[in-house]
Amino acid sequence: MSQSIASNPVSTSAATLPTPGTAEFIQETLALTRRLFIQLQRRPTTLVAGIIQPLMWLVLFGALFQNVPSGLFGESQNYGQFLGAGIIVFTAFAGALNAGLPVMFDREFGFLNRLLVAPLASRFSIVLASALFIATLSLIQTSAIVILSAFLGAGLPGPAGLLLMTLIVLTLVFGVTALSLGLAFALPGHIELLAVIFITNLPLLFASTALVPLSFMPPWLQVVASLNPLSYAIEPIRYIYLHPDWQFSSVIMQTPFADISLAIALLILFSFSALAFITIRPLIDRRIS
């Protein structure tokens, strides 16, 4: 064997250690992301269930209100059309909310220590890998919903509309993933994390415009739904679906506080995600650096 199997103490000095750069950060982020995709590939149940579940929502929940008088749900032709935007956003949200679970299990099994003793260029690669993984999953789910909705008669937005929808879903996913990862580092174990996921999930769905428009709600719930970031992802997508001629200045939502234009809604959504990232950063730093 020409190469030493072990170390060469002389060469392994601190002087030869290059300062970590972008290349190292990309290398480690890709490797960590690859691990998540291998897991998905060998255990595809999550993905299959994650696609079937929103489709069942769409079909069953849509059928539930199939016979409501047309025009009752705003400008939508039927409830199925109204519901599509809600299901897209809720599915992406629920997926992102679960992003912390694998990290929590890595903490509990000690696998995270393997990463933490390594000279990572930045430990933020652990966070980024999860975000990339969840974002990909969400886009696959979203595509499935968009395609089924089209078959159910909801129509299909134009290329610009689809692009904007993608952007909206990704923004929401990154923000919620950040929060979930923050929780995964802050909470003591997966039981607690699951509890938080359970109590956040459905209330945020009901207190949003996913299932009914704001005008159906009592005033107090209108206030809550207008503070719910999910509404600011749902309403733009719904508007894009119904208005092929959408403009950034179009008013898409009338909250108890103000009329919200498409641009304002996007700004609010973007701020929410940015805030989520800023909030969890110190939490993650404290735990893992």
Binding site: E28, L30, A31, L32, I38, A118, P119
Partner: peptide, 15 residues
């Protein structure tokens, strides 16, 4: 993961 995949991950996080 397979053993090799784990080692590949390990190699990447040590750059």
């Amino acid at each position: 993961l397979t053993g090799r995949e784990l080692l590949e991950l390990q190699a990447a996080i040590y750059h």
